[in-house]
């Protein structure tokens, strides 16, 4: 625990120190590369502009993630219940996944006719596939002897789903969820870049674009820091959720002794 915490913190501080040192010694102007102290100062001084943008980006990310969970799990369950549905739909889910979001974002933005809705759709598109494919894998990775046991006791599809397939799929789903949390954020940011519209509701990506136009490089870095921090926070929150749901029984959540 302590080494796991101390080692990356020490490493991070060293890198930040090195960065600050290089910037100072080489006298790099802040509009080329601001040092970490300047970035931190900007983060504080520009908080009034950056905070609302952070909330907007987070809101889109979380909404997209929620939609990805609902659609991904529902589709996965449908797939597990009907081989035909899976055969007919799964290839299209893959097509959606492999098509770069940057390429379809302009289309979605043009069709949705509403910036926030189109951002939501883009983030959702990127986020839902890991949940779908992991949950499908989990629903299928059921001990076949347990399936036989359920059959022996006359459990139908529904009871087998509730009492056997869904619990067995939970660790896989949570693994997918952790990937999707980061992807939803990436999807939201990428879509914002493509949309590129400033206005009353503008997220962090727009702040980065705007700061770039205005050559306010420290603010650009500050917005970048916030995006990273948001991604880390989402990952940690989902890891905690995963641990809370699995720590009693799943191998992945059991810490090695000693």
């Amino acid at each position: 625990m302590s080494a796991r915490f101390v080692a990356p913190v020490v490493m991070g501080l060293l890198m930040l120190g090195l960065w600050e040192g290089i910037v100072r010694i080489a006298e790099v102007p802040p509009y080329v590369l601001p040092g970490p102290i300047v970035v931190a100062e900007t983060l504080v001084s520009d908080w009034g502009t950056l905070a609302p943008s952070l909330w907007i980006t987070l809101e889109i990310t979380l909404e997209a993630l929620a939609a990805a969970v609902v659609v991904g799990v529902l589709l996965a369950v449908l797939f597990s219940l009907s081989r035909w549905i899976e055969l007919s739909l799964f290839p299209y889910a893959i097509i959606l996944q492999v098509t770069p979001i940057v390429a379809i974002a302009p289309l979605i933005i043009a069709w949705a006719n509403d910036v926030e809705l189109s951002l939501l759709i883009c983030a959702w598109l990127v986020a839902f596939f890991p949940i779908l494919s992991n949950t499908v894998l989990g629903l299928r990775s059921v001990d076949h002897n347990l399936l036989a046991l359920f059959e022996l006791y006359g459990a139908g599809r529904w009871k087998t789903l509730i009492h056997l397939r869904l619990p067995a799929a939970l660790p896989y789903f949570l693994g997918g969820l952790r990937i999707s949390g980061g992807l939803a954020l990436i999807g939201a940011v990428v879509a914002e870049f493509v949309a590129g519209t400033g206005g009353s509701a503008s997220g962090l990506a727009w702040r980065i674009l705007e700061a770039g136009y205005q050559l306010r490089i420290p603010r650009m870095f500050a917005a970048l820091v916030l995006i990273s921090a948001a991604g880390i926070a989402i990952y940690l929150a989902l890891s905690l959720l995963s641990y809370l749901l699995l720590w009693r029984w799943h191998e992945s959540a059991i810490s090695p002794e000693g």
Partner: peptide
């Protein structure tokens, strides 16, 4: 009837 498999075949989440 009751059936006992070669493996314990328990549900780890219960």
């Amino acid at each position: 009837l009751g059936f006992v498999f070669q493996e314990p075949t328990l549900m780890p989440w219960a």
